[in-house]
């Protein structure tokens, strides 16, 4: 059974954008089992902008699952933003998970906003000033939650959804100097701690689409400026990660035989 996942991030909605995505979104019931939103749903995190998101992405005929992004935090109205989205039937994940039944296959989605810190060999450490330690601890805590949310799901297919990037691969095109503000290897480590099938993120507008974690999990940057369409659609084919020793091993095994 193929699972069809539609995804986009960084749509930055306000009144001026409402209606732009809707014609493409109306096709979703025929083309996807679920729509995932990879954060930065609003322009700067107001309740009224969240209502625009609810208008645009509510009542689509497919489940909609979202994480928030840094823009959605800017105005300190996160509880109101989440309430408005949930009232529209959008599931918001913050270090949590949801399992959907896709015609008999249990699709587990674990999501968290994530945070910065950088990547192996070029990352921030929990050392020095309180502000620096707080920065790294924030990422550590969120990554820990994401790992638990991924591992604890009882499902057939696992997908990780974040706003910040779990690998540097999908940042190619961004200035290397700002990588530490675009993601963290700790998110990748959390994703690799479970048999994850696919990891989706946004945030890096000038980045690139494809990458993999050190553990071999496919990563896709679905930021709207990167995919340049209303959403991307991914078809996940069995056997799923966890049912085998993983995609990389499965390919090697068939190559040997």
């Amino acid at each position: 059974m193929v699972i069809r996942i539609a995804a986009v991030g960084d749509v930055h909605l306000d009144q001026d954008v409402v209606g732009r995505f809707r014609p493409a979104l109306e096709e979703l019931p025929d083309t996807a089992d679920v729509l995932l939103l990879a954060g930065d749903l609003t322009r700067h995190g107001t309740e009224s902008e969240a209502r625009c998101v609810a208008t645009e992405f509510g009542g689509l005929g497919v489940p909609v699952v979202a994480v928030l992004g840094n823009h959605d935090y800017h105005c300190d109205e996160v509880p109101a933003v989440i309430r408005v989205l949930e009232d529209a039937g959008i599931v918001v994940l913050e270090g949590t998970n949801v399992v959907l039944d896709c015609t008999g296959v249990r699709l587990g989605i674990a999501g968290a906003k994530g945070f910065g810190g950088g990547f192996a060999g070029r990352c921030a450490s929990e050392f020095g000033e309180p502000e620096m330690k707080d920065f790294v601890r924030t990422t550590s805590a969120i990554s820990e939650q994401l790992g638990v949310a991924l591992r604890e799901m009882d499902c057939d297919v696992r997908v990780a959804l974040t706003h910040y990037a779990p690998v540097p691969d999908t940042l190619a095109g961004e200035p290397p100097e700002i990588y530490p503000f675009l993601g963290s290897y700790l998110l990748g480590q959390a994703i690799d701690s479970a048999p994850t099938e696919l990891a989706l993120h946004g945030h890096a507008h000038a980045g690139s689409e494809r990458g993999t974690t050190p553990g071999g999990v496919r990563v896709r940057n679905v930021a709207h400026p990167v995919i340049k369409q209303a959403y991307s659609v991914f078809h996940l084919h069995p056997p799923y990660a966890g049912a085998t020793a993983g995609k990389v091993s499965a390919v090697s095994a068939s190559g040997i035989s």
Binding site: A24, P225, K228, A230, H237
Partner: peptide
């Protein structure tokens, strides 16, 4: 302006 058309292709992940 970022285009908002529906995708014409899907990515098959096997």
């Amino acid at each position: 302006l970022i285009r908002t058309q529906a995708p014409t292709e899907v990515e098959e992940l096997r």
